[in-house]
Structure formats: structure tokens, C-alpha cells
């Protein structure tokens, strides 16, 4: 109950804060300044989303099969070491990944997408692997015992039961991806980072915010979209959010 009350109070405060921020920004003419950046924001946001979509899409397309392959019993011997490598990979800061990527592939879109791809790949592959390995042995035995082939077991039992965890991985990975794309500007790939970093360099707060706020909004929207997809796609019986 106290938690509920606190949540309610926070919500009221938040609404009030947004309201007063609105009043203040209108009075001080900030809104007009923002509107000045609108065409830039639109163009850069398109670029931003494109970077996310390509790197994220490629990462999902590669990470899920990678997780599946590593979780097969025949791979048991190398799977754990491979996961160790992936775990170490996850701890490398994305900026460092981008820097490394640049040192191999030069500057521009390709190294940026490659760097983002690597950073996004790891959490998805890890969750896919963990999700599949987490399917209870009793379930696998039942599936085998009633005569499902290994492929049928994968698609009818393992993946549906791991789906929630896999989606959690995709959600984390893509949200981070959207938030990281601004760094891609540093190796010459554009995106909303252009406004943020230029704004910082020029001490132009409004310019910086014109990049930062849409980035934050994008992250929130992507997160919500994936959460909704998971809610709809993951079968009710294995979907904690629909229990």
C-alpha cells in the first residue's frame, strides 16, 4: 500500500513538473528555438532510426541463430567458453567497440553499423542461449518421449518457452542501441549525436537538448514497442506479464 501511494504521489509530481516546464519554456521562448532545429531533428532522427534498424536487425538475425546453435547439446563442449567470450565482449564499452571498429573499417556508416551490431548482438545471443538452456529438462524429456524430432522440439517447445527471455534480451539490446547511436556521430555516421555533440561543443544547450530529448523519446518508444510485441507474441502460458 505505501508503495502504491508513493507511486501515485510521484506521478502527480511528474505531471506538475512537466506542466511547469511547459509554462517556463513557452515564456522564455525556448520552444521557438527548438522549432528552429526541427528540420535538422527530423532528418537526423531518420538517420538515427536507420542506423538502429540496420544494426539491430542484423544483430537479431545473427544473435538468435548463434544462441540456438550454442545451446545445442552437441555444442555443449564449446558453448560455455563461447559464452565467456560473449560476456567479456559485453563489458567492453560501446565507445571502445566503435573506436576499434573505426580503426579497422575507417570512418562512416559501415564501421558505425558494425560497431552497433556487435554491441547489440551480445545481449541477444546471451539471452537466447540462457533462455533455451533454461527450458526445464523434464519438458525436454517429455517432448522427446512423445516422439518430437529435434527440430520439432526446438520450434514447438524450446523457442516458445524461451521466447520471453529472448524478448527481454532484444528489448535491452535495442534500447541500448538507440541510446548509443549518438556515439556513431563520432566516427562520422550522423544521427542525433550530431546535435548533441555539436551542442556540447558550442555550449548551446537548446541544440544539445534538441538532439538529446528525441534520443531519449526514441529509446522509450522502442522499449515500449518491443514490450508490446512480447506481450502479444509470447504465448499466454509462458508470459509472466499476462499471468
Amino acid at each position: 500500500m505505501p508503495i502504491q501511494t508513493m507511486k501515485g504521489a510521484l506521478r502527480v509530481l511528474l505531471v506538475a513538473a512537466v506542466f511547469f516546464a511547459g509554462v517556463w519554456s513557452h515564456a522564455s521562448g525556448v520552444i521557438d528555438e527548438f522549432l528552429f532545429y526541427l528540420p535538422d531533428v527530423q532528418y537526423l532522427m531518420g538517420q538515427h532510426l536507420w542506423l538502429t534498424a540496420v544494426s539491430g536487425g542484423l544483430a537479431i538475425a545473427a544473435a538468435i541463430p548463434l544462441g540456438i546453435v550454442l545451446s545445442r547439446p552437441s555444442m555443449a563442449r564449446i558453448a560455455e567458453s563461447a559464452m565467456q567470450v560473449l560476456n567479456v565482449g559485453t563489458t567492453i564499452p560501446t565507445l571502445a567497440v566503435l573506436a576499434l571498429s573505426m580503426s579497422f573499417l575507417g570512418i562512416g556508416t559501415v564501421p558505425a553499423i558494425f560497431g552497433l551490431f556487435v554491441a547489440t548482438l551480445l545481449p541477444i545471443a546471451r539471452n537466447t542461449y540462457a533462455g533455451l538452456k533454461g527450458v526445464s529438462p523434464a519438458l525436454m524429456e517429455a517432448a522427446a518421449g512423445i516422439g518430437m524430432s529435434p527440430t520439432q522440439r526446438l520450434f514447438k517447445v524450446e523457442l516458445p518457452n524461451a521466447l520471453y527471455v529472448i524478448f527481454a534480451g532484444i528489448r535491452t539490446a535495442l534500447t541500448i542501441n538507440v541510446g548509443t547511436v549518438p556515439l556513431a556521430f563520432l566516427i562520422g555516421a550522423g544521427g542525433l549525436g550530431e546535435l548533441i555533440f555539436t551542442g556540447i561543443a558550442l555550449y548551446d544547450t537548446v541544440m544539445m537538448l534538441a538532439g538529446a530529448i528525441p534520443t531519449a523519446l526514441l529509446a522509450i518508444i522502442v522499449d515500449a514497442l518491443i514490450a508490446t510485441t512480447a506481450f502479444l507474441v509470447v504465448p499466454r502460458g509462458v508470459n509472466p506479464s499476462r499471468a
Binding site: S136, L139, A142, A143, S149, P160, N161, L163, G237, V238
Partner: peptide
């Protein structure tokens, strides 16, 4: 064939092993 053999044998285990993703 292993799959054919198993489909012809009913199998019940202690852990039940119903598929939670299926109705």
C-alpha cells in the same frame, strides 16, 4: 526409427512435463 517408436508408446513422467506454452 526412434520418433516412430516413441509416437507409438504413451509416456507419463513424474514431473508431468506439460508444455506450458500450449493450451
Amino acid at each position: 526409427d526412434t520418433q516412430d517408436l516413441r509416437r507409438g508408446i504413451g509416456y507419463v513422467i513424474q514431473q508431468i512435463g506439460l508444455f506450458p506454452n500450449m493450451t
